[in-house]
């Protein structure tokens, strides 16, 4: 009996250690995220379309200011701007611009919540929305998020978020869709806690 209990303990011990390690990684990421007042970076977005065996590459810049200011701007090969300012969202293209109150749109509210939580890494502890597993790969922590809710599963089969281990910054996000299409967003020139002109988040 003692031998059985000992064997069981030895077998389960690595799992226990892994669970703790994942928790401590998430805690580290969230600590840095909560201490982050602003983020500014460039990004390259590559959309892979399975049906066409083709991809579309876009370039842009992102600005974030805690707790609820976000500017996601595409600069090439087209211009498009998404600005979140408190509870309002501005969608601006060359043809038109629209302002949406996220409180009036459940879907917008959810998308905005997901974007903001991805920027600061708080999506990792959102266990009502995702089943999260984290692995160390080289100098990165790679978090795989499997959607738990039906509405999220309809849009994504899984999300993969890459964190730089040395500074806990998000450096890459992979979004896989049930159809086989996927999008990769790679962040670079990341600056944290620098002063960002508030005009960049202006909705007017």
């Amino acid at each position: 009996m003692r031998k059985f209990i000992f064997t069981l303990f030895i077998t389960l011990l690595p799992l226990f250690c892994m669970a703790q390690s994942q928790e401590s990684i998430i805690r580290q990421i969230e600590q840095v995220g909560s201490a982050t007042k602003s983020v500014e970076c460039s990004f390259v977005q590559t959309k892979h379309v399975k049906l066409l065996n083709d991809k579309m590459v876009s370039y842009g810049k992102m600005y974030y200011s805690a707790p609820s200011l976000l500017r996601w701007e595409y600069t090439s090969p087209y211009t498009y701007t998404f600005i979140l300012n408190q509870h309002q969202v501005l969608l601006k293209s060359a043809q038109r611009q629209d302002v949406v109150d996220v409180n009036n749109s459940k879907m917008f509210k959810e998308i905005v919540r997901l974007m903001m939580s991805s920027v600061v890494g708080s999506c990792l502890s959102d266990d009502t929305t995702f089943d999260v597993s984290i692995a160390s790969v080289g100098n990165e922590w790679v978090a795989t998020l499997l959607p738990l809710r039906r509405d999220m599963k309809q849009m994504w089969s899984r999300l993969v978020v890459h964190f730089n281990r040395s500074n806990q910054s998000v450096v890459k996000v992979e979004m896989y869709e049930p159809s086989g299409d996927y999008t990769i967003i790679e962040l670079s020139n990341i600056r944290r806690n620098a002063t960002i002109d508030s005009k960049l988040f202006s909705i007017n």
């Binding site: 379309v49 049906l51 159809s179 299409d181």
Partner: peptide, 15 residues
């Protein structure tokens, strides 16, 4: 002609 319409954040809307 094969076509795909996608959104800004990489989400495919229609093929």
């Amino acid at each position: 002609v094969l076509g795909a319409i996608v959104n800004e954040f990489g989400l495919s809307a229609l093929s």
